[in-house]
Each structure stands twice: as structure tokens, then as C-alpha cells.
Design a protein around this nucleic acid. Structure first.
Lengths: 246, 246
DNA sequence: AATCTGTTTTGGTCAGACCAAACGAAGCAC
DNA sequence: GTGCTTCGTTTGGTCTGACCAAAACAGATT
């Protein structure tokens, strides 16, 4: 073995894996964004321009741009110039959408996801019961009122239902939480939104919401958690009755 | 306006957006996978072959394949034939990695993520206290013993620390939970693994673990949660002292 | 059966071309 | 000046065809 093994091999990375030129361009653009040269909202240079400055073919540039788009770092609507996207928690969940949806297809997938939701929201209502502020309570109260007013309008009830839970996820003032809620509702929507809804069910769901709210008002985390678990368990039963075992 | 607006416009999608040919190929391959024509572990047809059957250029095929790779549906190591990947919960988190890491760079990002971890793990230990089975307890006990034995070996202690928490995430027997734990540890690793570690700290961390374990043993969810929160709060303090405000 | 060897296939990259839609500036009407 | 049309330019999306090095394969060799 000669020294050549150390210097030569332009196609090999440190770990011996072959190297894609597109990865370099990808990295390069990421650095441009991080360094602020490309501010958020700004359009990327044209593909031809990038291919010049990076000394690669447009093919490679396109691959890099596509990767950036797939990872959610830029917003590349077909036909338009790609725009640098502001990093926010929602995109993180959007980018996994296709994987998640196939995960949900496999047996027990929906139940597994739903269980994590129960777990998180249980913790959430406990926390809310302990430390919800006045404005949190007010937001919950408003959501609850809207919920009650929509009992006879199933479509609107579904919406206010989501808003009520969303209000819960706002309590910790952690920007991740609303994003998590949004992800849950969008992923579970195929089951929930298409489920037959009746004023009867709406009413019992509203009552469940109210029980959660009351427990929070009374600063009783145990009761809040129990009410939440009852509510979600009942919701699951409704789904199960409508669709069988998914 | 004539009828032509309805039939013509091969480049327009329903919503009027321009359409990428690669999306069709993408969808086509996804269907091949879903229908079982392409079993998991099986290699994709060659790019040239796909370009024939789909009647598109290889350029388009490459874009589609790249997208599949980015979304984690296939495993495309450079130079090799892409392999159909089995959908599992880990890839979901892997695919968001690049977005998450930039989210963590922004102020408060790490804290926000860590707070969600506290929230989830708090719920976890409560649940464990209520319904942990014999084998769960045994697993925790083992992890705890290994943890204690490693107090004087900081590197090993870090590993056993992770294993102890992992054992907690195994309790609900929900395949999502270990994946979540894995994601947390990998995302928070830059802070945790590179933090100065001393036998003193290790000892206090071990004690914290033991308190959690004991509370679970005693079937006391409140104490378990409190112990967990104390532990994670202390861990956060350690990180803060080491790195200042990230 | 294991190893070496040469041929074929395949992914990665490039150059150049074409199209239709988006962009942008000049010109026009109000 | 403001708003609108017009028209050439730029740009993204797609295609063709080519080349290279590495991977896959088949066959010969030991």
C-alpha cells in the first residue's frame, strides 16, 4: 500500500462512502442561509448561476435544490423561484408527513399514535391544572363556549373541538406544543373528520370538555387527567365503532 | 371561455399549480411499494428501466428517486441500487433531523425541546408507577445496577444513563416511544455528551434515577413524577452551567 | 468451493437544447 | 403619476445523448 491511498480518491468520503456532488452544493446553500447571505424569504440564485459559482452542472444543482425543498429548508413551488423558508416547528412535522401516513397504514399504527397523544395531553392538562394563568383560562372558556354553541352543527362542532384542544396546547407557551397538536389533528383527521357525528355525540363530547375545564379551574390535576383520559378513550371508542379496527 | 379550459392544460394540476413529472413517478413507485410489487429490501428497477416504463426521461426518474430517498422511503446509498426501506418509527425522526438541528440553533430551541421531553417523560413515569409489569421493573433494576456500577467511568455512565431512560420508554410497549427517546437523545446529545462529567455528578444522577425507580416500585405516580422532574431539572442546570444559555 | 477476470449494467455527472411560464422593463392609455 | 398591456428575457422543467467509475454479473481458473 502506498501513500496514494491517503491523498487520491476524490470520489470517496472519509468513511469510504462515495460522495455526491449535490451534497456539497446542499451544504453550501445551507451555509449561505445560516450566514445570512440568503435571508429568509429571499429567493435562491437561479440554478444556472449556482451551477457556475459551484462549478457543477445544473443537474447537480437541481438535485441539491430538490433536497433542500424536501427537507423543508426552502419553499419550491413548481415554476417559481425557490424561497428561503423560516425555520419553524410546523415544517418539521410537515416533512415527515409521507412517512407517518404509511406508518399509520400498518396495523395498530393509529392506535400507537393516539396513545402518545393521550400521554402528552394527559401531562398537559395536569400542568394546566397547576399553572394555567388567567388568560389561559379565558381562552379555554371561550373555546368551550364556542364548542357548546356548535353542538347542533356537527361540522362547526368538529372545528371548535379542535380549537378547544389547541387552547390546551397553548398553555405551556412552548412553540413546539401547538405544532404537535397541529400534527396530531392532521394525521388523525382521516379518522376523526370523516366519522359520523351526531348532536348526541357532540353533547357528550362537550360535557367531557367541560369536565376537563372544570378540573383545571379547580386546580385538580388528578381529576383533569382522569377527565382527559375518559374523553379521549370515549373518542377512540367512537372511532372504533365507525371504522372497525384500523 | 370554451370547453378547452377543462380538457387542455396538461401542465396544470387541479388547483392550478404547475405539475412536476417527478411527482407522478414518485407516486407510481410508492404504489409499487404499497401493492407489494416491490417488497421491502428489494432493489428498485434501474433508473433507465423506470424511465422507459414511465415514459419519462432519466432526469425525472432521478428526481423522483431522490425524493423517495429524502423522505426515507428508500435507502439510496451513493453508487448502489436503492433499496426499499421498511417503514419504521425511527426513520420518521431521522428525516426531520436537518430541520430540527436548525430549530435547535435558534434561541430557546433546546430548552423548548427539553421541556417537551420533561412533559412526556413525566407522563411516562406516572404510567410506569401505575402499570409497570414485573419484566419492566426487572429491566429498570438492571439498568439501574449498570448505572451504579459505572459511576466512576463517566463515559460508561453516560451510556447507562441513556439505557435507564430507554427502559422507561419501553414500559408502554408502544413502538413510538423508543423512537421518541432515541430522537431526544440524538438531538440533545451535542449538549449532554460533551458536558464535563465527574463522579460527583454521576453519583447524584444515579441517586436521582434510584429515586424514580423507587417511586415506581412503590406505585406512587406523584412521587415518581416529582423525582423525574427534579432529575431533569438538575440535568438542565448542569447543562446550563457548562454552556451558558444556548 | 473459492478466487480471479473481463464484460455489462448502473448510478453520478456533464453539456446542450427546447418549451412554457414567470419576470421585468418599456410603452401606452387614463 | 398610475394603471395596464406588450414583448423580449430569464428561469424552472424536461429531454437527449454522452462519458466515467464503480458495482453487478458471468465465466474461466485454481
Amino acid at each position: 500500500m502506498s501513500i496514494e491511498n491517503e491523498i487520491a480518491a476524490p470520489h470517496l468520503k472519509d468513511d469510504g462512502q462515495r460522495h455526491r456532488a449535490a451534497d456539497d452544493v446542499f451544504q453550501h446553500i445551507v451555509e449561505l442561509i445560516d450566514s445570512g447571505v440568503l435571508a429568509e424569504g429571499a429567493p435562491l440564485p437561479s440554478e444556472r448561476e449556482i451551477s457556475e459559482t459551484c462549478a457543477v452542472s445544473r443537474t447537480v444543482v437541481r438535485e441539491a435544490v430538490l433536497a433542500l425543498s424536501n427537507k423543508g429548508l426552502i419553499d419550491a413551488r413548481p415554476g417559481y423561484r425557490p424561497i428561503v423558508r423560516k425555520a419553524n416547528y410546523d415544517i418539521a412535522f410537515e416533512t415527515v408527513d409521507s412517512v407517518v401516513s404509511r406508518l399509520l397504514m400498518q396495523p395498530g399504527g393509529i392506535r400507537n399514535l393516539f396513545d402518545t397523544r393521550i400521554m402528552i395531553e394527559a401531562s398537559l392538562v395536569r400542568q394546566a391544572a397547576v399553572e394555567a394563568e388567567k388568560n389561559d383560562i379565558a381562552a379555554l372558556q371561550n373555546a368551550l363556549n364556542a364548542n357548546e354553541a356548535a353542538i347542533d352543527d356537527s361540522e362547526r362542532f368538529y372545528q371548535t373541538d379542535i380549537v378547544f384542544h389547541a387552547a390546551l396546547f397553548e398553555v405551556p407557551q412552548n412553540p413546539l406544543m401547538p405544532a404537535i397538536h397541529k400534527a396530531y389533528t392532521s394525521w388523525l383527521a382521516p379518522q376523526w373528520s370523516r366519522m359520523p357525528r351526531l348532536p348526541d355525540r357532540n353533547r357528550s363530547n362537550f360535557i367531557a370538555h367541560k369536565e376537563i375545564f372544570d378540573a383545571i379551574l379547580m386546580r385538580d390535576p388528578d381529576r383533569a387527567e382522569q377527565a382527559l383520559r375518559n374523553h379521549l378513550a370515549a373518542a377512540w371508542t367512537q372511532v372504533e365503532q365507525s371504522f372497525g379496527e384500523d
